[in-house]
């Protein structure tokens, strides 16, 4: 991990990529944006401090009701960019170079998504799992244990989306919104 303290200052000094941030989204202080391709952040999404969005290679699109935790890197793999669906929860310290992450997918602590990988809807990646480059995860896949996979048949997707909303409501109260800092 590099000098994380410089995240905020460099973001403010270096030219920001073209941002289109929904007014209901919550962007905390010290988010590091780099690159030149546009970054889109959907409604009601929350970006924790010290998360990094790198759009050097392509655009980044974050859907609505997403949570991006701190120390997580979102790196667009290529010109087609990185697209996150709605209700995507990316936990702390993930390294994401995926091409697409489907709706209601939960990516837990320290997960690594290989370059150009494609994660389906309603997937769950348990902590420290890794997905290889250009790998495709079908919908409702659970990656657990030592990168074992199984199909999620629990039908808890709706419930999880609701807890996501509650989570976001809570975060909105806790995290001071500094999104105007990035839209200036």
């Amino acid at each position: 991990m590099g000098p994380k303290r410089s995240g905020a200052s460099s973001a403010s000094s270096a030219p920001l990529p073209p941002l289109s941030i929904d007014p209901t989204a919550v962007l905390s202080d010290a988010i590091s944006f780099s690159g030149t391709y546009p970054v889109t952040i959907g409604a009601n999404s929350v970006l924790h401090p010290r998360c990094k969005l790198n759009s050097t290679e392509g655009p980044i699109v974050i859907g609505s009701n997403c949570i991006i935790s701190e120390r997580t890197q979102l790196i667009a793999p290529d010109i087609d960019g990185l697209v996150l669906g709605n209700y995507v929860h990316v936990e702390v310290n993930c390294h994401i170079q995926a091409a697409r992450i489907g709706d209601a997918t939960s990516i837990e602590v320290g997960t690594k998504l290989g370059k150009g990988s494609c994660i389906g809807d309603n997937c769950t990646l348990s902590p420290l799992s890794t997905i290889r480059d250009v790998d495709v995860l079908p919908a409702f896949t659970v990656v657990y244990g030592e990168n074992q996979r199984r199909v999620d048949a629990s039908a808890t997707a709706v419930a999880r989306n609701e807890t996501m909303l509650a989570h976001i409501d809570c975060l909105k109260k806790l995290i001071p919104n500094k999104s105007e800092k990035y839209t200036r």
Partner: peptide, 9 residues
């Protein structure tokens, strides 16, 4: 809550 296995499976 880890692998989403349920007894309904």
């Amino acid at each position: 809550s880890h692998c989403h296995w349920t007894t309904s499976d």
